[in-house]
Write a protein that binds this DNA or RNA. Structure first.
Length: 422
RNA sequence: GUGGGCGUAGCUCAAUGGCAGAGCUCUGGUUUGUGGUACCAGUGGUUGCGGGUUCAAAUCCCGUCGCUCACCCCA
């Protein structure tokens, strides 16, 4: 057998030690804020019918065309690792008959997602997202509230320099009419476009606005914008949404070029960014309204709006701003011991400490006292409990204050109360 | 899928064709039961993998795998 050194698959990563601190604080903040706003947590399978995603995110998107992990079961079903969360939530909404609950239904999720693409800074093949979805309400106040809730999550995490871009991409009627206008315009400027944008003109003209090729920027600036071509309903929806955002005093700006990569969006779309120390703009997440998706996936017509954020991206932003306070082991007590009997008594003592909610660090496998003292010093424990051979047989322990250097011997059953007093 | 950069100890990196090394970390020791420093020692490598050139390859050549950055796109 050849000796192999296993390594993680391309584009996937372990979340260990220091990173777990960031990861957990994001999760608990998301849970806390979502819960406050009346969202219920939903966990859906990591595998779903491949067609759910093909229909859900749109067959012409990159996700459908080349980024899905798919597999065939022994029974012959075609399944896919979920590339995003909304399609699964909508599937569950329909399948579980959530339309019969009081509307709107508010749900949030946290978990891993998968896209098979070339990794790069802040982009993975397995990554974590959290998302919030509100199904069954078409009122623009919900659009504004979703934006506000995710903004609250980010500010609760102490992120600074957040900016929000919003736009409206209309509904079926006004978007289709607008697409024709745009295509006509792009064709007239065809000679000035990059090759990608020539292709986009035919396949997905709205994507033209994602192009970063300098050649296309001038054409982009002059191009007709969707927000100037909204129908009356979409226009008033957008205007109302912005007024609510104004009322919340959120740092948003309108970006008429914001489109989004998934096909299911209608009306309001938005993205969140932070500015890093180097002055770079990092996309944290985004979302929008998707009034047609529930019907498209087999339910009855149901308006909905949602948002999804990349947890690794948020971690990156938090690290960039040094947002996590250092190790909090100062309030931990260190338990040092020598010998078999002392180890045995230590095991029992630790249980008493745990019941008293006193955090304790031990080094049970060690015997040399000096090494244990060194370790206690390093983590900065204020108190150290020492049980040596003598103390073990006498049912006592030494409590030493590491700051003053003073120590006293107390009976084992008095240790907890002594420590509590300080 | 396209194009750049890079693969040497757990980590950061030396060694420019001639004995594979240092710092940090880790484990232990410096009179046997008391502190972060200092000193000493130890663990840890088929130099990503496979071929080729050469008396001799971490080093040069070819291939391959992986990492990384950018494009496409997105979180």
């Amino acid at each position: 057998m050849k000796k192999t050194k296993f390594q993680k698959p391309t584009g996937m990563h372990d979340i260990i030690f220091g990173d777990q601190k960031y990861f957990q604080s994001i999760i608990s903040t998301v849970e806390g804020v979502s819960d406050y706003y009346g969202f219920s947590k939903i966990d859906t399978p990591i595998l779903e019918d491949e067609d759910l995603f093909l229909k859900g995110v749109g067959e012409a998107t990159d996700i459908s065309e080349k980024e899905m992990y798919t597999l065939k079961t022994k029974g012959g079903d075609r399944l896919a690792l979920r590339p995003e969360g909304t399609a699964s939530v909508v599937r569950s909404y329909i399948e579980s008959g959530m339309a019969n609950r009081p509307q709107p239904v508010k749900l949030y999720y946290i978990g891993p997602f998968f896209r098979h693409e070339r990794p790069q800074a802040g982009r993975y093949r397995q990554f974590y997202q959290f998302g919030l979805e509100v199904l069954g309400d078409s009122n623009p106040v919900i659009d504004a509230q979703i934006i506000n809730i995710v903004y609250s999550i980010l500010t609760d995490l102490k992120l600074k320099n957040i900016s929000i871009e919003v736009n409206s991409i209309g509904d079926k009627e006004c978007r289709n009419a607008y697409k024709k206008t745009l295509v006509k315009y792009l064709k007239s400027k065809s000679s000035l476009l990059c090759s990608d944008c020539k292709r986009r003109t035919k396949e997905n003209p709205l994507r033209f606005f994602d192009c970063k090729d300098p050649k296309c920027q001038a054409v982009k600036a002059e191009a007709p914008k969707i927000i100037d071509n909204l129908c009356e309903d979409c226009h008033s929806h957008f205007k109302q949404t912005l007024e609510y955002l104004d009322g919340l005093e959120l740092p948003y700006q309108i970006n008429p070029c914001l489109v989004r990569g998934l096909d299911y969006y209608t009306k309001t779309v938005f993205e969140f960014f932070v500015t890093t120390k180097e002055g770079k703009s990092l996309a944290l997440g985004g979302g929008g309204r998707y009034d047609y998706l529930v019907k498209l996936l087999g339910g009855k017509e149901t308006p909905a709006v949602g948002a999804a954020f990349g947890i690794e991206r948020i971690m990156q932003a938090m690290k960039d701003m040094n947002l996590i306070d250092g190790p909090k082991s100062k309030d931990k007590v260190f338990l040092a011991q020598i010998g078999i009997l002392a180890k045995s008594k230590s095991l029992v003592l630790i249980e008493s400490l745990r019941r008293a909610k006193i955090p304790v660090v031990e080094s049970l496998g060690k015997d040399a006292l000096k090494i244990q003292m060194t370790k206690a010093s390093r983590i900065g424990s204020k108190f150290i409990i020492i049980i040596g051979h003598k103390e073990a047989t006498e049912n006592s322990a030494i409590i030493k204050n590491m700051e003053t250097g003073r120590q006293e011997t107390v009976a084992l059953d008095k240790v907890v109360s002594k420590i509590k007093k300080g």
